[in-house]
Simulated scan of single mutants.
Amino acid sequence: MLTASDILDLRLDADLVILSACNTAVGPAGGDLAGEGLTGLARAFFYAGTRGVLATHWSVDDLAAAITIADLLQRQERGAPSSAAALRSAQLLLLDGAGSRFAAEFAHPAWWAPFVLIGDGRRGGMRLAGG
């Protein structure tokens, strides 16, 4: 488990950190401390040098998450005006494609709405950490 103190020891130059685990926005304590857990984690990543954090409010479907993240990153690479705009468009891809391109269940918010973006995640162009 990665803690805020572990993150504070990192030196990052990343436009966007994607926390890819179940319920990453909830934090270890859950319940009433959930918001504080995410805020502290995001603050630690910002201090370490990232410009945005993408987390999830609940467990996500693997396929829906893969489509959302891949589309978000492609939109970032193509010059989306903001990370929020890229995320919104990626979510609309799932919503609009439900029942045609994707399973009909993808129209339900459980599939496309778990993602939360903190910070803009942009500095000029999109550069992926480690890539």
Rank of each mutant, 00 (worst) to 15 (best):
G30V: 12
G37W: 06
R88G: 08
L95G: 03
V60Q: 02
G27H: 04
F46S: 03
L95Q: 11
G30Y: 13
A21K: 10
D13I: 06
A34W: 11
A55V: 05
S59M: 11
R43H: 10
G97W: 06
G30M: 14
A34N: 14
G37I: 09
A21Q: 13
L38A: 08
L92P: 02
S89W: 06
S89I: 05
Y47G: 06
L93R: 06
D15P: 01
E36W: 14
A85I: 06
G30K: 15
N23S: 12
A4P: 11
A14E: 05
P81L: 07
G97C: 06
Y47D: 10
L8S: 08
G40E: 13
G79I: 05
T39A: 15
T39Y: 14
A48N: 05
A98T: 07
L92H: 08
R51K: 14
Y47E: 14
D61Y: 07
V26F: 13
L73N: 07
A34D: 12
E36Q: 15
L19T: 05
P81G: 04
W58R: 10
L8H: 05
G49N: 10
A85S: 07
G97A: 10
L94V: 04
F46A: 04
G40R: 11
R88P: 03
A44M: 06
A14R: 00
A85F: 07
A25R: 05
F45H: 01
I7S: 00
T39P: 04
A80K: 01
D62A: 09
A25I: 11
L10E: 03
A86Q: 00
G37Y: 06
R78Y: 13
L38Y: 06
L41I: 13
S82F: 02
A48Y: 03
G99A: 10
G31R: 15
Y47F: 12
A86Y: 00
D13L: 05
I7R: 00
V17H: 00
G97I: 05
D71C: 08
D61Q: 11
T39R: 15
L54P: 00
I18F: 09
G97D: 08
G31F: 14
Q76Y: 10
V17N: 00
D61M: 08
L63A: 11
G27L: 06
Q74T: 14
S89E: 14
